[in-house]
């Protein structure tokens, strides 16, 4: 088993939490992990990215080679496209549909989504809407994690446990909310895959 995942988003959108959840789940299940992330300057509202590599064999490079990612998982649609050159032939691109507009020249959303839709393997999800219905928009990142789950190579229970580890400090209600978000995202992705 070997999966290379690129996470994309904007500073503050919670992609490091997605990364930490996958990383914790992978290592507690005996897999090798390399997960590089961006700290510092770009966290001030700039684009942020994380490379997650999990494998049953030793992982060498902290960076995924361009053109080799199995999955791009993004919490923002333009940020999904920013990492397009990382995606391998036949890889999946899964993104939240809600744009994060903190720049004046943000492109037309329709143009962005048209690019996403042009790709054969793609899923677009209203993660903010789903998270809001569950009780907090803050869980939108975990909805996206759920949506990516069919392509990450880990079982849903492994991620539930990891969410327990990571959010346990904040109370059982927060853990439960995130587990619900995870499952909702997964259900949404399965709808597209099984179509």
């Amino acid at each position: 088993m070997k999966k290379d995942i690129v996470l994309g988003g904007v500073g503050g959108q919670g992609i490091l939490t997605i990364a930490a959840t996958i990383g914790t789940a992978a290592v507690s299940n005996g897999l090798f992990l390399k997960q590089s992330e961006v700290h510092g300057m770009s966290q001030r509202g700039g684009d942020v990215m994380s490379n997650i590599r999990i494998s049953s064999n030793e992982v060498f490079s902290d960076l995924i080679p361009e053109g080799k990612a199995d999955l791009i998982l993004a919490v923002e649609p333009m940020e999904a496209l920013r990492h397009f050159k990382m995606l391998k032939n036949g890889g999946w691109l899964i993104t939240n549909q809600k744009p994060f507009i903190n720049i004046k020249n943000y492109p037309e959303l329709d143009d962005v989504l048209a690019q996403v839709n042009a790709l054969e393997n793609h899923i677009v999800i209203d993660a903010d809407g789903i998270a809001k219905d569950l009780g907090s928009v803050k869980a939108a990142n975990i909805v996206m994690l759920g949506a990516g789950l069919p392509f990450i190579g880990l079982e849903v229970e492994m991620l539930e446990d990891a969410l327990g580890v990571l959010f346990g400090r904040k109370g059982q209600d927060v853990v439960d909310l995130n587990i619900k978000a995870l499952k909702a995202g997964l259900a949404e992705a399965n709808k597209v895959i099984n179509k």
Binding site: L81, K85, I103
Partner: peptide
Amino acid sequence: EIPEINDTPEVVTARPPALC
């Protein structure tokens, strides 16, 4: 040989860091 790599779509706009 490096396999052919996707081009970054033109709609992608720079998102430089900024003051909060």
